[in-house]
Design a binder for these strands. Structure first.
Lengths: 154, 154
DNA sequence: ATGTCTGCAAATCCTTTGCATTTTA
DNA sequence: TAAAATGCAAAGGATTTGCAGACAT
C-alpha cells in the first residue's frame, strides 16, 4: 500500500485507496460496512478539506444518508480511529479521514477556507502531560489567521 | 507587579492581582467595568480551571450576572485579550483569564479534570502557515488523556 | 439469527439575537 | 448624555436520543 501514481489529491494513495484503507480499519474494529457509511467515506476521501456532519450529508446527495446517520457514523468511526475530529471555533466540529500522517490545519478567519499544514511538534508540551501521569494522549490543534487572498482583496 | 508571596494559586500575582490586571486591560480597551463583569473576573480568577459561561453564571451566584451577560462579556473580553478561549471537544467552550504566559491544557477523558501545561512549541507548524501567506495567526491546542487517578481506580 | 445500523421525529444543549431599560465614563 | 452593558424572552444552530424497521455478518 503505497506510491501509486498520484491523481487529484496530494497525499498517498488516492481517494479510492484511502476509502479502502478506511474500510479495512472498520473491519478490524468490527464496525459494519454499510452503503451509507461507504458513501460517507467517499465524500470524505474526495474532499480537500475537513467536513462537518452536515457537509457530508449534503455532499452525499439525495437520500444517501440521513444527517443523524452522518453524526452517528462519524462518531463511531472517530472512536475507531478511522476519521479524525477537528473541533473548530464557534463550536463546530469537522471530520477528515484519518491519514497516516498526523497533521493540522489553518483556517482563514474571513473566508473560512482550510488548508493542511505539514508536521506537528508538540513533543515538549506532550512530555509535560506525560510527566503529570496522563496516559493515552491525543491532542487537537487548529490555527487561525487571515489567508493571503482575504488580506489582499477582502 | 510581581513576586508577592504566593497564596493559593500557582501563578504570579494571586487572584486579586489578576483581577486588577484584567480590569486595567479592560480600561485600556475601553470596555466598561461593571459589577457583573467584576464578579465574572473574580470567579475566573479564583478558579483553578477554565470555566464555561454557564459555570461562571452558576458560580457567580444568585442574581450576580445573567447567563446571557456571561456569554456577552466573555466574548467581549476575549476580543480584548482579557480572557482566553479554550474550545473543547463536543463543542463546549471554556474561558480562563488570559495569563501573560501562553499555555495549554490536558483534559482527562474520564473525569473531565483539566490541568495546565507549561510551554508551547508550535513554531514549526506556525512557520508553515506563515509560509503560505497567512497573517495574524492564533491557535488552539488541547490535549486529552487519562489522568493518573482515573488510570488507577477508574 | 442477532446484534448493529438506519431513518424519522422530537428532544436537548449551548449560544446568539432583539429590545426596552439601566449603567458607566 | 451618549454609548455601552444588562436582563429577559425567544430564536437559532448543532448534536443527541428514542424507537421501530432494515441490514450486515
Amino acid at each position: 500500500m503505497s506510491h501509486g501514481h498520484r491523481h487529484d489529491d496530494g497525499c498517498c494513495g488516492g481517494a479510492a485507496g484511502r476509502v479502502e484503507a478506511a474500510v479495512a480499519r472498520m473491519k478490524e474494529k468490527s464496525l459494519r460496512v454499510t452503503a451509507p457509511r461507504l458513501k460517507l467515506l467517499r465524500v470524505l476521501a474526495e474532499s480537500a478539506q475537513p467536513l462537518s456532519a452536515e457537509d457530508v450529508h449534503r455532499l452525499a446527495g439525495q437520500g444517501a444518508l440521513d444527517l443523524v446517520t452522518a453524526y452517528r457514523s462519524l462518531s463511531a468511526m472517530e472512536e475507531a480511529g478511522v476519521v479524525q475530529r477537528h473541533p473548530m471555533e464557534r463550536g463546530r466540529t469537522l471530520y477528515a479521514l484519518a491519514s497516516g500522517h498526523h497533521h493540522h490545519h489553518v483556517v482563514c478567519r474571513r473566508c473560512g477556507r482550510i488548508e493542511r499544514l505539514p508536521g506537528c511538534d508538540t513533543s515538549r508540551v506532550e512530555a509535560a502531560a506525560l510527566a503529570r501521569g496522563y496516559a493515552d494522549l491525543t491532542h487537537v490543534m487548529e490555527f487561525y489567521g487571515v489567508c493571503p487572498d482575504c488580506a489582499a482583496h477582502g
